[in-house]
Design a protein around this nucleic acid. Structure first.
Length: 836
RNA sequence: GCCAGAGUGGUGGAAUGGUAGACACAGGGGACUUAAAAUCCCCAGGCUUCGCGGCCGUACGGGUUCAAGUCCCGUCUCUGGUACCA
């Protein structure tokens, strides 16, 4: 009979639940180094249910957690739900169903699906970000940010998604489109709450050195933070008392600055524009305001701009240079104004060419700067006191000059911008602020938290920058906690990123009603030792969470400067797709396979098999429920780990999982068919076992699950040759299986007379001496080519091996009559002769 | 454009500078069966040879080395990030 996974998996899941096998406590008898916090990025419970991508990371952390437990660790391994979010709210707009109802339903589905996979979560620690008992503390942390001056109100133009009808953070805009829905974002002036993440820019950058994260993710964060060292330079404006301040990384090219540009949104623009230019400039500003970010970047590399009518004085040579208004200068970076050095900057060069502005070479160039910009380094020319100097020396000297004249100074700029934190939507944490006509903005007192969401009749956002909450007068109108006068509540809500900024702390102490997390418990577990999730959060969630954590650290609320010590990104699970010659993809149900080739059923056109993301339209989405129904959880888990390295993307193969099923089933049938015996295993089998324990231990601890599974397959192939299973070779193998196929392992363990749960057993040890074969194959190379393979004893001496090698018939053919000029012997591996 | 990462059989993938292709999938052959499914055993990078063997082969071109998938230089392709950031 084949493995009755339904029955056995249900049996053990029930056992684990009833016996609270995976319940974890802050047991002080575990020393600090024997405690581990293993965390998954919690899911957003969408209506579509679990995707095959979810179990990938969850299985990896599950195997690792179980492995650590068996190695004597106290392991915190929780799961919860990132439950605020737009899909539930959009569904509410369509159907009138309260998002809380939809969300609860979806969470129940997710929980059921996740539990069906047999993970060792401590479910008593489950959290949900939309639970008022949870978001009470999200609001509390916001209040701490506010008290620290890290939250402020702003009216600056922001990215607005017309489809989601809400403002977006810079991090949520991808190539000019909304990261969530793909709509093209617009610019809008809307009152916003903004978090001063820029105040932490330097520390967010520096502390990346403290964590064990993939270099690629660190790099993405470094790029996003975008630190650049340079100088602030003041340019006097002719006829005005004021100066125009610019940021430049190349103050040494100041002699080549032939004009200036201010962004259309620059605050000084009214003063700069002369009466005769007013009409034209106003027209230009209006046009620029209409453009989206995408228009200003992708589509319009063609430079546009207008002359303001004013001139600035170049501080190094006193020359008058024109000030232009152009949208290639961004208001949000630096000071929103630049000095233009067209000879050595491509953008400035294009602009200068278009508007016939002078181009002066100040770095010795290998090209004619009148025909193209020279953006490489060069010795300074035409630069007065800098002539002949290299870049570093010239920057230093220029800075000295500017500082002495009080016209500039060294400074640092960051690309990172403050975090637009308010959303004009319903289904999020209400921002706990009250607007009082006499006291101004006042925090909701801590005792009144959580500030819960009111019921609304319509979930439809107004689209005018007000959330649906603005229409609930009974909720909006309140009394000021300070003066007791009439006041109004803030109607914006928090973005989805708010709740996920600190959930890993709440897992530590999920039911505490006094504090967001108990101090001692926090110290017991933090930081997170391993955090596994998708790379899509490389900048967004991981940057925001680090920011909040650092604020909490500064407030003495948490004990570590960084929340996540080690991060691993799992690769995406992709699918096969079929491509026509014109590169368009054909839905899987329209594809026919004949003799290993693929054809379009309709046109008969031959198709190429390629790898693509799973998508509904391609009909290649794999549903975990169906996979489990067919093969069970153990096989599903094992297959996802066997597909390839955790960190890389790999395509789902329906035949691949069948192979893994055969492996699981083979183990089962072996246990059914072969008697267990107390007889000693053969030496050969013991060697295979010890090699397997060694390989599986090493590979599990380093998350190389695919090769660990390969080794277990090799061992099963060895076991299958036996008539009976020696317990001494069988029981340790069940322990190795336990993290990978826990249900099967429990059942097999019970059948050997072992006491449940096998998860509480000790991980097996191996004997190094038994991992080495007695006979070793040694390769003989002549001039780098393999000419013979010798079987020699592992104890054979170098001389013996060399003499054996020389006697080999095939080797003789290549060395006879030649002079051996070099002999290389790598013990246990090879002999290499160099002959002439 | 810039910055990362990756390119290995028909497929997924293995390989501390030391036998390239472990383990699997798909494929071929055989056993069992009335037959099929399931299962079990065997074969299997390409070319060549009756065979021993030989030659070629890790995207492409060079280099270092007794020895390179692995290290170095250059090129191409793909994936991800970012994009007028001064």
């Amino acid at each position: 009979m084949s493995y009755p996974f339904n029955q056995i998996e249900e049996k053990w899941q029930k056992y684990w639940e009833e016996n609270k096998t995976f319940s974890v406590k802050e047991d002080p008898s575990f020393p600090k180094e024997k405690r581990a916090y293993v965390l998954d990025m919690f899911p957003y419970p969408s209506g579509a249910g679990l995707h095959v991508g979810h179990p990938e990371g969850y299985t990896a952390t599950d195997i690792y957690s179980r492995y650590l437990r068996m190695n004597g660790y106290n392991v915190l391994h929780p799961m919860g739900f990132d439950a605020f979010g737009l899909p539930a709210e959009n569904y509410a707009i369509q159907t009138g169903t309260h998002p809380a109802i939809t969300t609860e339903k979806n969470i129940n589905t997710f929980r059921r699906q996740i539990k069906r996979l047999g993970f060792c979560y401590d479910w008593d620690r489950e959290v949900s970000t939309c639970d008022p008992e949870y978001y009470k503390w999200t609001q509390w942390i916001f209040e701490k940010l506010y008290e620290k001056g890290l939250a402020y109100e702003s009216q600056a133009p922001i990215n607005w998604c017309p489809n989601c009808k809400t403002g977006l953070a810079n991090e949520e805009v991808k190539e000019g489109h909304c990261d969530r829905c793909g709509a093209q974002v617009e610019k809008r002036n809307i009152r916003q709450w903004v978090l001063k993440i820029t105040a932490y820019a330097q520390r967010l950058l520096d502390d990346l050195d403290l964590v064990d994260w993939p270099e690629s993710v660190k790099l993405m964060q470094r790029n996003w933070i975008g630190r650049s060292e340079g100088a602030s330079v003041l340019f006097k404006v002719k006829g005005l008392e004021k100066s125009l301040e610019v940021f430049t990384t190349r103050c040494d090219t100041l002699f080549g600055a032939t004009y200036m540009v201010v962004s259309p949104e620059h605050p000084m623009i009214d003063e700069l524009v002369t009466a005769d230019r007013k009409e034209e400039v106003s027209k230009y500003i209006a046009q620029a305001a209409k453009k989206s970010d995408l228009d200003r970047t992708d589509l319009a590399k063609e430079k546009t701009g207008v002359f303001s009518g004013s001139y600035a004085i170049n501080p190094v040579n006193g020359k008058e240079i024109p000030i232009w208004v152009a949208d290639y200068v961004l208001i949000s970076y630096g000071t929103g104004a630049i000095m233009a050095v067209p000879a050595h900057d491509t953008r400035d060069w294009e602009f200068a060419k278009k508007f016939n502005l002078p181009i002066i070479e100040v770095l010795k160039s290998e090209v004619d700067v009148q025909t193209q910009a020279w953006t490489e380094d060069g010795i300074h020319v035409n630069s007065g006191f800098l002539d002949g100097l290299n870049k570093a020396d010239a920057i230093k000297k220029m800075l000295e000059f500017l500082e002495e004249k009080k016209l500039g100074h060294k400074t640092v700029n960051f690309k990172l911008r403050d975090w637009i934190f308010s959303r004009q939507r319903y289904w999020g944490e209400p921002i706990p602020l009250i607007h009082c006509p006499s006291c101004g903005t006042v925090l909701v007192p801590e005792k009144d938290l959580p500030l819960t969401l009111p019921e609304v009749k319509s979930y439809q956002p107004s689209g005018t920058g007000e959330s649906p909450l603005a229409n609930i007068e009974s909720w909006v109108n309140c009394t000021c906690p300070k003066c007791g006068g009439k006041a109004k509540r803030e109607t914006n809500t928090m973005p989805q990123w708010g709740g996920s900024c600190w959930y890993y702390l709440r897992y530590i102490d999920p039911h505490n009603s006094e504090r967001f997390v108990d101090e001692e418990k926090e110290k017991y577990w933090m930081p997170v030792d391993l955090y596994v999730g998708g790379t899509e959060h490389a900048v967004l969630h991981l940057l925001y969470a680090r920011f909040w954590h650092k604020v909490l650290y500064d407030l003495g609320q948490v004990s570590t400067p960084e929340p996540f010590q080690r991060l691993v990104n799992q690769g995406m699970i992709t699918a096969y797709a079929y491509q026509k010659k014109n590169k368009s993809l054909v839905p899987t149900d329209q594809v026919e396979e004949r003799d290993g080739a693929f054809f379009d059923k309709q046109s008969g056109e031959s198709l190429e098999r390629v790898i693509a993301k799973m998508s509904k339209s391609l009909k290649n989405v794999i549903n975990p429920d169906e996979v489990i129904a067919e093969y069970g959880a153990d096989t599903m888990r094992l297959y996802e780990m066997f597909m390839g390295p955790l960190q890389v993307s790999k395509p789902w193969s329906t035949t691949g999982i069948a192979g893994v099923w055969r492996f699981v089933d083979r183990i089962w049938r072996m246990a059914e068919e072969k008697p267990l015996t107390d007889e000693e295993p053969t030496k050969e089998l013991l060697k295979s076992l010890n090699k397997t324990i060694k390989k599986v231990s090493e590979d599990t601890s380093t998350l190389n699950f695919n090769t660990a599974i390969s080794q277990m397959m090799i061992y099963v192939n060895d076991l299958s040759k036996l008539e009976a299973l020696p317990l001494k070779a069988w029981k340790p193998f069940i322990l190795l299986l336990c993290p990978y196929v826990p249900h099967l392992a429990e059942e097999l363990w019970a059948r050997t007379g072992g006491k449940a749960s096998v998860c509480n057993e000790k991980w097996p040890e191996f004997d190094e001496a038994l991992t080495v074969d007695d006979m070793i194959q040694v390769v003989v190379q002549v001039n780098g080519k393999v000419r013979a393979k010798l079987d020699v004893s592992k104890d054979a001496s170098k001389d013996e091996i060399v003499s054996l090698a020389k006697q080999s018939e095939n080797v003789k053919k290549y060395i006879d009559g030649q002079t051996i000029v070099k002999e290389i012997v790598v013990p246990g591996k090879l002999v290499s002769f160099v002959v002439k």
